[in-house]
Nucleic acid binder design. Structure first.
Lengths: 145, 145
DNA sequence: CACTAACCTACCGTTTCGGTAGGGATTAGG
DNA sequence: CCTAATCCCTACCGAAACGGTAGGTTAGTG
């Protein structure tokens, strides 16, 4: 029950781009240094973000990456679903899961389904811009709501 | 980001005991058959539940396992923390985590902390008895609350 | 005494995780 | 035109976790 480095690094990379938006293209090496991530490893996480049209990569000297849209238009859920993969909390709810015979009477399935929507709502309710604001974003969504 | 079989099987075992409470001791083999879990594998998940005093195991003929307390007194969070381990969604929030240098300025840490409380609230707000009721338990805690 | 069933430990094949290595292909600047 | 910078792509790799198996020992029942 852990978010792996792929999801966390991918998200931090996107945040790094958001923090340096409007400064031209950000070389992977610089982002990796700031985020203290192995450049070669980070490099392997990015293709999925490029292919999804989330970031634009420009080759050659002076190149690098930049966000395509406004930071507020990327939800954390969007980024995690790409980099981490499926956000389903159990295997039987994964997109590629084969149907489970026990589904019709499983006492735990409703809970996992409910948890999945809780997670979706949590991650889709946060944008890169929200995270840049820091803790302030969570003050607006207090635990009691 | 998946709950492993240890947590899921442990929970289903506890639910199986809850469903057969008051019928004496439930042999592991019977519970494993009903839950379609490898008996030998399930056997390896149980010691932590026994040592925590969640279930009582009795050896010899006529023996087996039974819940020690009322099903309503076990939260899903209790069971999962024992069988699955830490419920922290990222490594840096785990109990045994070494302190992260980036914590003071990490843009994602507040989100993970918030998510951890969301998960704790979710799992600690459900008991074995709630799950036995099926979907009804979730009608009482609608998505909008 | 025999049988049942919990208890305990070691092993094992597969997958995932986190990372490294080594090349291309492309572009800006001298 | 050459070179340095930069993205892009694929293959490999050690360690750990996952999910399960095997084979015993201990304890209680009939």
């Amino acid at each position: 029950m852990k978010i792996s480095t792929r999801g966390r690094y991918g998200l931090r990379f996107m945040l790094d781009l958001a923090e340096h938006a409007g400064e031209g293209y950000v070389p992977l090496r610089e982002a990796a240094e700031r985020q203290e991530i192995s450049p070669k490893y980070l490099e392997r996480i990015l293709p999925v973000l490029v292919r999804a049209g989330f970031v634009e990569g420009v080759q050659g000297k002076g190149g690098g990456y930049r966000l395509v849209r406004d930071p507020a238009s990327y939800t954390v859920g969007d980024v995690l679903r790409l980099t981490e993969g499926d956000l389903a909390p159990v295997a039987c709810l994964a997109l590629d899961a084969e149907p489970c015979r026990r589904a019709s009477f499983c006492k735990t399935l409703p809970m996992w389904q409910r948890l999945e929507t809780v997670l979706d709502d949590f991650f889709d309710g946060l944008t890169l811009e929200d995270l840049l604001e820091g803790e302030a974003a969570f003050k607006r969504h207090p635990p009691s709501s």
